[in-house]
Design a binder for these strands. Structure first.
Lengths: 222, 222
DNA sequence: TAGATTGTTAATCGATTAACAATC
DNA sequence: TAGATTGTTAATCGATTAACAATC
């Protein structure tokens, strides 16, 4: 009962994939153990932070030795649920939709797109990668029947809310929204928004500041 | 001199595009002013936070009235440098690269991809959207000559570091890295990493917790 | 005017970092 | 053993939220 009461800091959750990826690399190099000191240098993080993050997954290291890489990987995967495959539906087969369907990386997260949906008759019936594009009005019935838990939205902004509503009626529990628009979902539905605008805002502003300071520097020089 | 010393909280920077997008919506509806109370309800944020965020851009509101939408939009755009066009090079014309090249949304951020690069002879010379795919070994010379500031990496992981190195030799100042791998750049280069794994980790874990608690609930019921 | 809203200062909260005993 | 590393508690830091005077 208590376990799900412990709240995991979101920054920690967001760092776990980085550790996971890095550890997989170490494993291919044939290494068996790793210390936080070592990881910290490579990943540019402070050792105590890494230690705390890893502790959340339930793994324990050994003083003087460090952590077993194999155990760490299993611990992270189990903690995130990446040790079993989750099937997902994706709606919207435009550029981004196609790109995600073909993305090979999902495998390592245990995510598998099993069907795509669209309203455009020109794409319905086609195959993208391994999967079939179905008409959107089949979504509710199919997702209920197949007990699909995850829905991915890659439609234009204007359709995102109505697609989310369909997914919820189809008993989908988590929505990964790439439509860069705020959609509203009930409390018991997990919503994860993915958008490149925030990242670009950070890049734009930092760039502006560094270029400004460069120009200022030049002025000072002459 | 002082201006660039003030550090802007990154969470604030990341929220600005959301305000920007929302305000554009209000403008198309013909509204002229807006209060933080009102925005807060729509965007699910506390009014004082919105006020602080907006204050960073230098705009001032009027007590009892709120903010002028037009002035807010201009203030955010100017603050982020989105009021002028920045030209960018993109390297790697796979699924993701093509997808970003065709992405219409960059226009509103003042970002324009002016050339694409690849090493694959099969794609070199082709046109994606409006732009030409050039051989990678032309990058340094061209980006120096055209004074390109932004480089976008959409290559496989294995090439990301070497592409970044080329960009830096081509005097690019900011790198937007979609290759989901840690690349190393000198201090004076801005690096912004874009990766969907952190977001999916959050979704996976939350989903796991909610599904677990659902199963537990059922057990308790019977 | 009264009430709503801004702008700003203070209090709270949560995450990161520092410190250090325990340990192999 | 000595030194490196973990695990944990305390201190710090930064962002969010609360409180409230100023104001149109």
């Amino acid at each position: 009962m208590d376990r799900q009461m412990i709240s995991i800091p979101e920054p920690t959750l967001r760092r776990l994939p980085m550790y996971h990826h890095y550890l997989k690399n170490l494993r291919t190099k044939g290494l068996e153990t790793v210390s936080c000191t070592y990881m910290g240098i490579e990943l540019n993080l402070h050792p105590p932070q890494i230690r705390k993050d890893l502790a959340f997954t339930g793994v324990r290291g050994a003083p003087k030795i460090g952590y077993k890489i194999e155990a760490l990987l299993r611990s992270i995967e189990e903690f995130l649920g990446w040790n079993h495959v989750d099937e997902a539906f994706i709606v919207g087969v435009g550029n981004l939709g196609k790109c995600l369907i073909k993305y090979e990386g999902f495998k390592q997260y245990g995510l598998k797109c099993v069907a795509a949906f669209d309203i455009d008759p020109k794409v319905i019936g086609k195959k993208i990668g391994d999967i079939q594009v179905l008409p959107l009005d089949k979504l509710i019935e199919l997702s209920t029947r197949m007990k699909i838990k995850i829905g991915i939205i890659t439609t234009p902004r204007t359709s995102a809310q109505s697609v989310a509503d369909l997914m919820i009626r189809g008993e989908i529990k988590g929505i990964w929204n790439f439509a860069s628009i705020n959609i509203k979902v009930p409390n018991n539905i997990i919503l994860q928004n993915e958008d490149i605008a925030p990242g670009f805002a950070v890049l734009s502003k930092k760039l502006q500041l560094i270029i400004q300071s460069g120009e200022l520097g030049q002025e000072v020089q002459k």
